[in-house]
Write a protein that binds this DNA or RNA. Structure first.
Lengths: 238, 238
DNA sequence: TCTTGTCCTGCGGGAACCCGCAAATTTTGC
DNA sequence: GCAAAATTTGCGGGTTCCCGCAGGACAAGA
């Protein structure tokens, strides 16, 4: 059994290394990569079936690396180990998990015990282990009281990239008006109309405000934007 | 001599602790705080004159903590120790450094040697030590080829918060047209007109696109937005 | 003093945005 | 198969944004 660790922070990497050795005595080799890109390459070259992956790395972030790894070997077991439980990350991971794949998501703030337990559960028992906090965020979005639907989230991303309504309509193959409808739903769900402080109604540019609120609530974050921007450029702009 | 470490990651905190003890044998006590708020409190209570400060912490980030510490004791020596050299951070730090204060800015990716050297230089020699990479970003903004002026940056932040042109005009005590002028400068400097891919001119909502580009280039980041949002709410919205 | 440069300001218009209303269409549940 | 519910689409208008043009205010320099 071999485990690949993908993590850019040296301290965290060596901590992980130790944790893996302690939790999985049956593990022969522990490999390391210090960014997403080299993580992909190593996983491919060494046929690693067990990966511990940090999110947010330079070069290529954990979500993208995981996606290509899973594309090549959907049965790879991946344990995500992240500082934050931003909705954007949670959503990003959920989007790329293949049918029936086993994975885990634990926060760096978790205790040693939790980490080791997760390592054993995911790698040995093929059991998914999602941190309680992360799980909470997942739930909130399905029980769509305030959470955004996928459709709404996609529109949000397009808006955040700076596309016009017309451009979005074309990308999404919708009429102009439909895009605007979805935008209005978005505005409601993000409480864009709630005005901090006083002043007349017209203090906010709604489309911009929606994105600001999404960023403040971590529904969106920089790495989600980067991903979307890259996709946009690849798809040639239309 | 006492040193206060403000850092939320336990691994990094203990690493720092060791580094401080190694670099500064004359140091009697090393204190620790695990978020910005308790950092402020400890600094006040213990009259720490030497602080190592992480940026981006929950509760209160390093820049805000440093500001209140410096407000109370402008001669405090602060060494910022950060993962990133986002322009937003660099600018945020520069904005709060008091006249003649001594501080440092080193990246977490720096070697042990660099860190220890910086510790000695800042705390013992009262000499400012700014990481080469960070310095580069500072320069770029003064030699205003592409860098944003402070005026432009402020407008950018207001736009990113979602304020309308009119609201910004009122906040900044300018005419509507002046705000729009500044916006146009912003659009130029951020290359908002450069279109990835093909398509007619009108693919982008310029105001939104400008913010997107700023985020992608790290001219803005989430914590800068949070700060601005808090200021906005405190100032009652006008 | 007279340029020259930079910044602020007002005017005007074309484009984009925001959204109420109502009809057409698709999806859902039974 | 049908009715209810949700989604999509078009129309029309009020508002905001984007920006070219041009006239003023103020400072620096010949």
């Amino acid at each position: 059994m071999r485990v690949l660790i993908v993590e850019d922070d040296p301290l965290h990497r060596s901590y992980l290394n130790e944790a893996v050795r302690a939790a999985l005595p049956e593990c022969e080799t522990v490999l390391e990569a210090d960014n997403g890109l080299s993580g992909e390459l190593q996983a491919r070259k060494l046929r690693a079936e067990h990966v511990v992956m940090d999110l947010q790395m330079s070069e290529r972030n954990g979500i993208e690396a995981a996606r290509t790894i899973w594309r090549e070997r959907p049965d790879t077991k991946i344990l995500f180990w992240s500082n934050y439980s931003d909705e954007a990350y949670v959503r990003g991971v959920a989007r790329i998990v293949p049918e029936g794949a086993t994975y885990g998501y634990v926060l760096k703030s978790a205790s040693d015990e939790r980490l080791k337990l997760a390592l054993r559960s995911v790698f040995m028992e093929s059991q998914c282990v999602i941190d309680r906090e992360v799980r909470g965020i997942q739930q909130k979005n399905l029980g769509n009281a305030h959470g955004l639907s996928d459709a709404e989230y996609e529109i949000l991303v397009d808006v955040a990239l700076g596309l016009t309504d017309k451009a979005i309509a074309q990308r999404k193959k919708l009429s102009l008006r439909s895009v605007q409808n979805r935008l209005q739903q978005l505005y409601e769900k993000l409480d864009v109309y709630e005005i901090p402080g006083d002043g007349p109604e017209g203090w906010y540019n709604l489309r911009m405000r929606a994105v600001a609120v999404a960023l403040l609530r971590k529904v969106l974050n920089a790495s989600a934007l980067e991903r979307a921007e890259r996709e946009l450029r690849n798809s040639g702009g239309h």
